[in-house]
Design a protein around this nucleic acid. Structure first.
Length: 290
DNA sequence: CAGGTCTCCTGCTAGC
DNA sequence: TGCTAGCAGGAGACCT
């Protein structure tokens, strides 16, 4: 079985966000062996952040996978004695095969009796952290920096309001800030802001309570639907080349013309990120007319 | 503290 | 045709 994230028509827009990571989590959970890891090959060690290459191997070899969790865009592999936290960043992907030969951009390969798992990452931006299960991984970086997901109990209008107060930066930057709200990346933030008809450059503190409520509701809907669709850019080679069906449901990201008013969509830069929005339908100051 | 800028890295593309 | 400079982007480091 292959689990891969491919480039689709939107160049540079294939980064895994929460729905993609969740899809990868489910597929790995279904396919990875629960027997001890027999070997680990490291071809590019800078992926590993908090322990040495030697420690990474010695502490993981012999460990059996118990479960895979997820927090925001982080995958959390739980073994007998250790916890491996993996972030795919822009282009990280895993593939599991009975036997694989490491190819270009395969940086770490885990082996079991039953198969091999390769971590492949063209841009080498992905990260891995290794912790002991005795440590509390939730109170130290990177997980300590991850704020609540839209689905979490901790996510509420009152919470977001408190985090938005006094913030002058664009709302898009605040929604991309994983310490405030986790799981939304560049594509989904554009989608959410278009659907709630708020301009990405609207100052955060000017977003009303009513708008915050709508942002939460729409974030849940967009992410939930994307998860149900298997993400935007995921495909499994075992079932041909099907990419995530949410790709077809994008309304604004990568589009040329506004699906509501027909005006050409603007491509601007907000907080250093390529941003798609409709100047006609997304307001900076006005209350959205939903 | 808030927020801006730089860094990491490679593949693609515009421009010559 | 072949080359190169420039760009994209999640999150942390660093600076103001």
């Amino acid at each position: 079985m292959w689990i891969d994230i491919i480039k689709v028509e939107l160049r540079g827009c294939n980064m895994p966000e929460l729905p993609e990571v969740e899809t990868v989590r489910q597929m790995l959970l279904a396919s990875l062996p629960r027997t001890p890891i027999t070997n680990i090959q490291i071809y590019y060690s800078k992926i590993i952040q908090n322990v040495s290459e030697i420690q990474f191997r010695s502490r993981l070899i012999g460990q059996s996978l118990i479960d895979i969790d997820r927090r925001g865009k982080y995958l959390i592999f739980i073994f007998n004695d250790v916890i491996l936290i993996s972030h795919l960043r822009m282009e990280g992907k895993y593939r599991f095969e009975e036997h694989l030969e490491a190819t270009r951009h395969d940086h770490i390969v885990f082996s079991w009796e039953q198969g091999m798992l390769a971590y492949n990452d063209t841009r080498k931006f992905g990260t891995m952290h290794l912790f002991s299960r005795e440590e509390n991984v939730w109170i130290q970086p990177p997980l300590s920096r991850v704020g609540p997901e839209p689905f979490d109990d901790g996510m509420s209008v009152a919470y977001l309001k408190s985090r938005f107060e006094g913030r002058l930066r664009p709302i898009k930057s605040s929604l991309l800030d994983q310490t405030i709200i986790s799981g939304l990346g560049n594509i989904y933030v554009d989608e959410v802001l278009f659907r709630v008809r708020i301009h990405p450059e609207k100052p955060t503190s000017l977003v009303s309570e009513k708008e915050i409520a709508t942002i939460i509701e729409v974030s849940r809907a967009v992410l939930g639907e994307a998860i149900a669709c298997g993400g935007t850019t995921i495909r499994t080679f075992s079932s041909g080349s099907i990419h995530g069906r949410f790709q077809q449901k994008l309304l604004i990201h990568g589009k040329k013309v506004c699906p509501i008013c027909g005006v050409p969509i603007q491509k601007i830069v907000v907080g250093g990120r390529g941003t798609y929005c409709c100047k006609n339908c997304q307001y900076i100051d006005k209350i959205p007319s939903l």
